[in-house]
Design a protein around this nucleic acid. Structure first.
Length: 287
DNA sequence: TAGCCGATCCCCT
DNA sequence: GGGGATCGGCTAA
């Protein structure tokens, strides 16, 4: 991404604000599809060859099939970033779309921070043990939902933490607004719509009724391959958020996000420095 | 802008 | 009965 170069000379917050503005108001000549264009059908640019991951013979050529999800959690968490677009079709056929920019990997029984630690399998976390691509949606703090996608490996999954909203932003804003405490408050900025695991669930109207659904087959929620980026996004590997009790597992760099993205929920400058100097190098060898 | 803290209730032990 | 993969309002610097 061109923005990674900018980050050397510009403060990150400023850069993020500029990026957000550019996405909303492209003035650099780059053609950004309008939300309406994004709303309609699959992306126009699918590339010359069809990946084996693509399924659905009729209609939705860009939808990702079961094979895509059948990879280890770390690998899947990284594969989600940048080019995968989460689509949610509401009952009135409105389609909400967002590009995945931040994920966390939970590795299964050995991972002290995972709900499946020690091999625990309960009615709540059953989705973690189901076939790759199964959703695990649970209630947290009595008020919010979090959305995971199971990966290869028993009890392993990927938490979706943030999206870059691409289509249906007004519907997202309404959904978020309706669920906030001070519902009479100010309108949410675009970057506040999906920059957190529960925020994105609110914005996409994802609740527990989505638990254990198959992301490769469901009619209301699926994943699409987005238009190709000019270059691979720079990915930062950082410690996961909100798992202070998990000992050494709390420190492992199992959270992944796109460097410089204004849509990410939590920025970790130390991890970004490590990644830049190669000290952490975003390598799977860490695990 | 960063840090603190209350809200809220299900799930697990 | 206690804790939690969060969020947002408030306050201080």
């Amino acid at each position: 991404m061109a923005s990674s170069k900018l980050s050397c000379t510009m403060g990150q917050k400023k850069q993020r604000a500029l990026e957000a503005k550019r996405h909303q108001n492209p003035s650099d000549g780059t053609q950004m599809p309008s939300p309406k264009e994004l709303h309609l059908g699959p992306p126009a640019t699918l590339g010359p060859t069809r990946s084996i991951y693509f399924s659905s013979p009729e209609g939705r050529p860009a939808r990702l099939g079961s094979a895509f999800f059948d990879q280890p959690a770390v690998s899947l968490a990284r594969a989600f970033l940048g080019q995968q677009i989460l689509v949610r079709r509401l009952d009135d056929s409105t389609e909400l779309r967002g590009r995945i920019v931040e994920t966390e990997a939970y590795l299964g029984p050995e991972d002290e921070a995972a709900h499946s630690r020690g091999g625990r399998q309960t009615p709540r976390n059953r989705g973690m043990f189901m076939k790759p691509g199964t959703l695990y949606v649970y209630l947290i703090y009595g008020m919010y939902f979090c959305m995971n996608v199971s990966s290869r490996g028993d009890g392993a999954c990927v938490l979706l933490r943030a999206l870059e909203p691409l289509g249906g932003l007004e519907a997202m804003r309404q959904l978020r607004h309706a669920l906030r405490k001070g519902a009479a408050g100010r309108a949410l900025k675009d970057r506040e719509l999906c920059n957190g695991p529960s925020k994105l669930c609110q914005a996409l109207a994802i609740d527990r009724s989505f638990d254990q659904r198959d992301l490769a087959r469901d009619e209301s929620v699926w994943l699409e391959q987005g238009p190709p980026e000019p270059s691979e996004p720079a990915v930062v590997a950082a410690a996961r958020v909100g798992i202070g009790q998990a000992g050494e597992w709390a420190q492992k760099p199992l959270r992944f996000y796109i460097r410089g993205s204004p849509w990410v929920s939590v920025v970790d400058r130390a991890a970004e420095r490590d990644t830049q100097t190669g000290a952490r190098a975003c390598s799977h060898k860490d695990f």
